[in-house]
Design a protein around this nucleic acid. Structure first.
Lengths: 143, 143
DNA sequence: GTGCTTGCAAATCGTTTGCAATAGC
DNA sequence: GCTATTGCAAACGATTTGCAAGCAC
């Protein structure tokens, strides 16, 4: 994704495109591997030595509150982030902890808000847990 | 649920039914409100003053690893637990943080393990986030 | 008495907070 | 200069770890 597209996303969501905000969102736009705060911070701080972890937290919270990114809580250890806002499921391998995208069942691909029992549903998350193909091959079973 | 049923569940899953294990599982069998470690500890320690938080963590990890309970990671703050192993969805209100059970779409009510792209799927979690009926009524909107 | 279970205290680590420094208009 | 943004250091809080004490067979 072009940097100009990333900047446009910020502007159209009423977010002032500071260097730090562009860097974080661009990282998510390019790296679709559901990074953690730490991964984002570690990579970006190589090119922005003054970047602080706090700023990464602040930016991610802002992007989430404005609907630009998803928070993935599949893993109890840490929150992961994803700028792919198309409705899709996430699978985590209990053995190697890798997270990959999977398709959603058609019935819940609905991306709009809807009501169940008078509750307003704004987000739908589908998380699968199990053992990935590689770990099965490598027999990385937890015994 | 009868205490004898709770004990039977432990035995049939090859878990020695210590007092602490019975107490934790029984708490989950009776209280279907998705308690956190802290809630379980606080309530149980009233009647078991020597109970330690560590033991609650240990027991919950054991029960989860033996397939007796579910871990709910809908909330990034803390893990919640549920001894209801029937496949069902969870809804969390972003305003009051209450977690309630909802029905699953029929298409993913499948409770068996299955494969997607050579990955073995052992658990399916559906999490909805939004605003609950009460908060809508009380207009507890985050402004 | 051997091995499993429990419980305490300390450590760990992801995240948040308070506040001062800085940047942008 | 005023306001929003950033960044540092400390605090916080959920969870884990190391290890000693207790329990069961």
């Amino acid at each position: 994704m072009e940097q100009s597209q990333t900047i446009n996303k910020l502007i159209t969501h009423n977010i002032k495109p500071s260097l730090q905000r562009i860097a974080v969102l661009q990282y998510l736009d390019i790296n679709k591997n559901h990074p953690s705060v730490d991964e984002i911070f570690n990579v970006l701080s190589k090119d922005m030595p003054t970047l602080s972890r706090t700023t990464v937290y602040n930016v991610l919270k802002l992007l989430y509150s404005k609907g630009l990114i998803q928070m993935i809580t599949i893993n109890e250890k840490q929150v992961l982030f994803d700028s792919n806002m198309e409705n899709h499921a996430h699978f985590i391998c209990k053995s190697c902890n890798k997270v990959v995208d999977l398709n959603l069942p058609e019935t819940i691909k609905d991306t709009q808000n809807f009501m169940i029992d008078n509750n307003l549903i704004e987000e739908t998350h589908v998380y699968y847990k199990g053992m990935c193909s590689e770990c099965i091959k490598n027999k990385n079973y937890e015994l």
